[in-house]
Amino acid sequence: MTAQRQERNVSRSGYGFRPGIALIGFLAVLASLAALAGFSSAAGAQTTERVIVNRYTGLAIEGYDPVAYFADARAALGRPEFEASEAGAVWRFRNESNRASFVAHPEIYGPQFGGYDPMDIARGVTYAGNPRLWLIVGQRLYLFGREEHRDAFAADPARRLREAKERWPALEQELAR
């Protein structure tokens, strides 16, 4: 750009402001914010705990009653007056009977793999399961991060469990750090 054209651009906008450059800068800021938003939502879904716990409330499986999956065949929120602590997490229940069942047998009623999606475990990664996407297979509760994962798991649970169980010890050890 010649010195004359540069001076003309400065005189039109006052301080050398060029709309094209400003737009590019603005778009770069938006792209950065979008990338950060995408990163933070993924980071919020992943966790570094052996049992998935909401970092703000301390609740396991977002406050859903783990026994209700078995007793009522549905995902149901627990109540604050019926809580128990197990594996470093606070678990909520719909009633005292569900609480007592869980306290007696947390290994049965608690979600397998700490609430992580078993399809992701089989791939060697830990991704939080959603308490509203679940299956009971072999009298054990499994939570899934996506519907497609639940459907694929249901199609061949023996194979998927074998794959997840092979990877789980190393992943669990990594989570313990």
Score class of each variant (00 low, 15 high):
Asp72Glu: 09
Asp117Tyr: 14
Phe113Lys: 10
Val29Tyr: 00
Gly88Cys: 04
Phe82Trp: 14
Arg92Ser: 01
Ser11Gln: 08
Tyr127Trp: 02
Ala73Tyr: 13
Pro80Asp: 11
Arg140Met: 04
Gly25Tyr: 07
Asn130Thr: 05
Leu30Tyr: 01
Thr48Asn: 14
Ser101Asp: 06
Arg162Phe: 14
Glu49Thr: 14
Glu83Asp: 11
Arg12Ala: 11
Arg8Val: 07
Gly145His: 14
Lys165Trp: 03
Pro80Gln: 09
Tyr109Ser: 04
Ser85Phe: 15
Arg55Trp: 05
Asn54Lys: 03
Arg150His: 12
Glu174Thr: 10
Leu30Asp: 07
Tyr142Trp: 11
Asn95Trp: 02
Ile52Cys: 04
Trp91Ser: 05
Gln173Glu: 14
Gly114Leu: 01
Tyr109Gln: 06
Gly110Cys: 04
Phe26Tyr: 05
Ala60Met: 03
Gly138Phe: 06
Val125Ile: 08
Trp168Glu: 00
Arg8Glu: 12
Ser40Gln: 15
Ala155Arg: 06
Gln139His: 02
Arg8Leu: 10
Leu171Thr: 09
Ala89Ser: 02
Asn130Cys: 09
Gly14Glu: 05
Arg94Ala: 03
Ala42Phe: 15
Ala73Leu: 13
Ile21Tyr: 09
Leu77Lys: 15
Arg150Tyr: 09
Gly114Ser: 06
Ser85Cys: 06
Arg79Thr: 10
Glu172Cys: 06
Arg123Pro: 07
Tyr142Asn: 03
Asp156Ala: 13
Met119Arg: 15
Ala76Gln: 07
Gln112Ala: 08
Ser11Tyr: 00
Phe153Gln: 12
Arg8Phe: 12
His149Gln: 13
Ala45Asn: 07
Pro169Lys: 07
Ala68Pro: 12
Glu166Tyr: 15
Arg162Cys: 05
Gly138Leu: 03
Gly14Leu: 02
Thr2Ile: 12
Ala84Arg: 07
Asn95Cys: 11
Arg55Gln: 11
Arg146Gly: 13
Gly88Val: 00
Asp156Asn: 12
Leu27Asp: 03
Glu166Met: 08
Gly14His: 12
Arg177Met: 01
Ser13Leu: 02
Ile136Asn: 04
Ala155Trp: 10
Ala22Trp: 13
Glu172Ala: 07
Leu30Lys: 14
Phe144Tyr: 13
Ala170Trp: 15
Ser13Glu: 12
Leu175His: 08
Asn98Val: 01
Ala158Val: 15
